[in-house]
């Protein structure tokens, strides 16, 4: 058995909006190098889970540990700096910046040139700029030919939907994260693109070494990538295990299809 502590760990995390309990005493852990999928019907609290982990909302109760250090109460950019980056279900690219600038901007957290060094163009600052440039091209090249070459200088708004999803992942990787949070990476993609995304998520672990927590609705993708699947409903973990275990779990089937399928406990 793995004796090391998990890389990302949530203990008893709760979050309510007014009277609506969106996350209720949730425990979740992701070990280094693991790919964990979060599934659940719409409104189950999956995106809120991501928002709480990344610091967009503070949790009402509970502890969130990244590499055994608490990240509760930190500003989102500080959490990103600690090694946690995400993509968005509703794409949030910097549309009027070029493809490459989108990725270069995300290198902010692990670079340091301030106003004075920038204005004086110190050698260190220029070296850092070259490194950012190189990193951006490297992150974009991960997606093959799609986002490289003349694409570097095209505005992000000119990209197709699938390429925007890829660019979001590239941007997230430019923050040099250890844990990558992907919010419905295959949403809105056609079957070929979805298949490609499945392979890509696998490569992100094997080639780039990221630990990945992913929200996904497409069960083919979930089946294809997951070491472990966590099913949420109304902010409560209703099942956890391998894909086959969770997919056949009576509670999960009930959550998706309603009480007619099984009898209520």
């Amino acid at each position: 058995m793995e004796t090391r502590a998990p890389l990302l760990e949530l203990k008893g995390v709760s979050k309510a909006f007014g009277g609506l309990r969106v996350l209720d005493d949730l425990d979740l852990s992701v070990s280094e190098g693991e790919i964990v999928s979060v599934i659940g019907p719409n409104g189950a609290g999956k995106t809120t889970l991501f928002n709480v982990i990344t610091g967009v909302y503070p949790p009402d109760a509970g502890e969130i540990l990244l590499d055994e250090r608490s990240i509760v109460g930190l500003e989102p950019h500080e959490i990103t700096k600690r090694g946690l980056a995400r993509t968005f279900q509703t794409l949030r690219l910097f549309l009027n910046m070029t493809v490459k600038e989108n990725v270069m901007a995300a290198a902010y957290g692990h670079t340091s040139a301030g106003v004075l060094r920038t204005v004086l163009r110190t050698p260190g600052m220029r070296r850092e700029e070259r490194e950012i440039d190189g990193l951006a091209e490297e992150c974009l090249a991960f997606f093959g030919e799609r986002l490289v070459g003349y694409r570097f200088d095209q505005p992000a708004y000119s990209l197709s939907y699938a390429n925007r999803r890829r660019l979001e992942i590239a941007r997230a990787t430019a923050t040099k994260p250890r844990v990558l949070l992907l919010d419905e990476p295959a949403a809105g993609m056609n079957p070929v693109e979805t298949h490609e995304m499945t392979e890509l998520i696998g490569r992100l672990r094997v080639e780039a070494g990221y630990t990945i927590l992913v929200i996904e609705h497409d069960m083919h993708v979930v089946e294809g990538i997951s070491d472990r699947v966590v099913a949420l409903d109304h902010g409560v973990k209703i099942a956890e295990g391998t894909f086959d275990e969770v997919a056949t779990d009576a509670t999960v089937v009930e959550a998706y299809l309603g009480t007619a399928a099984t009898e209520r406990r």
């Binding site: 990344t54 967009v56 500003e75 989102p76 950019h77 990103t80 700096k81 980056a85 995400r86 968005f88 949030r92 690219l93 910097f94 549309l95 009027n96 910046m97 600038e101 989108n102 270069m104 901007a105 995300a106 902010y108 957290g109 692990h110 941007r171 997230a172 430019a174 923050t175």
Partner: peptide, 19 residues
Amino acid sequence: RAWTSLREDALAAELMGMP
């Protein structure tokens, strides 16, 4: 780049590590 990023989408900029 951080300035223009936050002009485009302040929340995304914050979550991509920009204060």
